[in-house]
Write a protein that binds this DNA or RNA. Structure first.
Length: 487
RNA sequence: GGCGUCAUGGCCGAGUGGCUAGGCAGGGCUCUGCAAAAGCUCGUACAGCGGUUCGAAUCCGCUUGACGCCUCCA
């Protein structure tokens, strides 16, 4: 069970052997969504990477506390003092909490379709206002923040005197200052690099809470510091999120945690890379995105047909989580075929007979699967090994290779564990009333066609086959009879 | 402008100082009444130019291009 797991730490830019803070336990925090609109596929990719990582730690036998927050306050829009939730609420004339509820529900629904495991704790920013206020007080006491006009800002320059602001993003605060764009002169900040811990609420701002500094709302970066500390402790194992959060969000988290607790909060920083479409980052703000729901229905100009959630998942797992992945119709179409082949092959595995001896080396194949995952969660290499398994299954079922019953047992369970438990794929062939009816109908036609073929009535048999093809039902003639699949 | 990442065969996408990634597409073969499906099999790529080395696609430098962050973003 005990594996040497190496992961790429963004803090050091190196692959490091994973050593938990507490033996046998893993504390993992991942920055969740700001629930002011539907999650798009790019958002999903990051969460999916960490879902896979969570699954792998669980598989290795760790006790994992996985915290993924919901940001339901405090995330400012650009160039304004309004946060995203409040803005949306104002525009749609809804309570902020209606917005939060709506998009949180959407988020959960979508993740469920993608077969995500729920996190251990899913805390919200609004549920931790008190803790955030306390953290601000601590930072003020430590002399690393200042109050101006009812807002409190983190004093980055002061912090940088003793600590290194930029330790994660490899930036130099001095450089940052030199390259700062012209100020509009409106800011209360001493320095443009300073960031809000608490913002005074303007009259039109709907989400507001009392604080020692007046009525306002917490800054975005603070919630993650407070909630990760509360549930995982002052130092925990893994903090994850999208690459785009590295700066400033995660940098600010480190600074805040240092300012509160005087220690580096996170041992391993993991950053998932972006999903692009047409070569450009998917982002809500630019409109270059695709919604998961559109993948499931096929209703998006960038795709030619609908895809199962598991196909999208397989598509993403075929790329490494730290690589940029470009979404395109051709790429997903190709992934779908590979996915189907994998699933059909695993289905076939149940029929493989064991033998007196083994002609294949199952244990070294299994070790290779683990090696791939232990090398910074290399799912594309794992999948390559699974396809070697597919080849084996075909050869085994043709009797060209053999396995003893114990080897077959190990082989079979390893294929399934990695495919379903770790990659989180599902076999999409679900049965319902309609598919049962269709099944009966098509099987009837298959029987009629067989009769026609036995009579050498090619005209009729070909007609049945071709007409079904036109309807998107493909007949597959095999040695054991005819089956069909839907296109 | 600053910082950083990446450039792999028709497409997607791993990895490595010398030994086949894998998937999709394509060719060949098997199967089939003919097909399709399925299976087996083939393919020798690593942006350009220099350098280090016995040997580099893999290390170093430069050039070109793309992307990301620097302002909200997973």
């Amino acid at each position: 069970m005990k594996q040497d797991l190496y992961l790429y730490n963004s803090l050091t830019n190196n692959k490091e052997r994973f050593e938990p803070v507490k033996e046998g336990y893993v504390g993992m925090y991942v920055c969740g969504p700001t629930v002011y609109s539907n999650v798009h596929l790019g958002n999903v990719r990051t969460f999916m990477s960490f879902d896979m990582i969570y699954r792998y730690f669980l598989h290795l036998g760790y006790k994992v506390r996985y915290v993924r927050n919901i940001t339901d306050a405090g995330h400012l829009t650009d160039d304004s003092d309004e946060d995203k939730i409040s803005k949306k609420a104002r525009l749609e004339q809804l309570e902020p909490m209606e917005i939060v509820q709506k998009y949180t529900t959407d988020f959960h629904l979508i993740l469920q379709k993608f077969n995500f495991l729920p996190p251990s704790i899913e805390p919200t920013a609004t549920g931790h206002i008190l803790e955030q206020i306390q953290a601000i007080e601590t930072i003020l006491e430590n002399g690393l923040a200042y109050e101006v006009n009812g807002s409190v800002y983190f004093d980055v320059l002061k912090y940088n005197e003793k600590e290194h602001y930029g330790i994660l993003s490899k930036r130099n605060i001095e450089d940052a200052i030199e390259n700062t764009r012209a100020l509009d002169g409106q800011s209360d900040k001493k320095n443009p690099q300073d960031f809000a811990l608490w913002k005074k609420a303007e009259p039109e701002h709907i989400q507001r809470w009392n604080s020692p500094w007046g009525v306002g709302f917490p800054g975005w970066h603070l919630e993650c510091t407070v909630m990760s500390t509360k549930y995982l402790g002052e130092q925990f194992d893994i903090h994850g999120g999208g690459m785009d959060l590295k700066f400033p969000h995660h940098e600010c988290e480190i600074a805040q945690a240092q300012a509160c607790n005087h220690q580096n909060p996170v041992k391993y920083w993991l950053h998932g890379n972006m999903l692009t479409m047409n070569g450009k980052k998917m982002a809500k703000s630019t409109g270059n995105n695709i919604l998961p729901e559109e993948i499931f229905t096929g209703e998006n100009p960038n795709i030619s047909k609908a895809f199962e959630p598991s196909v999208a998942r397989f598509f993403m797992m075929q790329a490494h989580y730290r690589s940029i992945l470009d979404f395109s119709n051709d790429a997903v179409l190709a992934a779908e075929k590979g996915y189907n082949r994998l699933m059909e092959s695993i289905g076939l595995m149940a029929e493989v007979q064991s033998s007196g001896n083994s002609s294949l080396d199952v244990s070294s194949w299994k070790a290779k699967c683990y090696m791939a995952m232990n090398d910074d969660f290399n799912t594309p290499v794992l999948i390559a090994h699974l396809f070697e398994g597919v080849k084996w299954i075909n050869l085994l079922s043709e009797g060209k290779e053999t396995l003893t019953s114990s080897d077959l047992e190990v082989f079979s369970s390893t294929m399934k564990v990695f495919t379903f438990d770790i990659l989180g794929l599902e076999n999409s062939k679900k049965s319902d009333k309609n598919t049962d009816r269709l099944d009966g109908l098509v099987n009837l036609l298959i029987e009629m066609r067989k009769t026609a073929r036995d009579d050498r009535n090619w005209e009729l048999s070909d007609k049945i086959r071709d007409e079904l093809t036109k309807l998107g039902i493909q007949l597959k003639d095999g040695k054991e009879g005819t089956t069909y699949s839907l296109n």
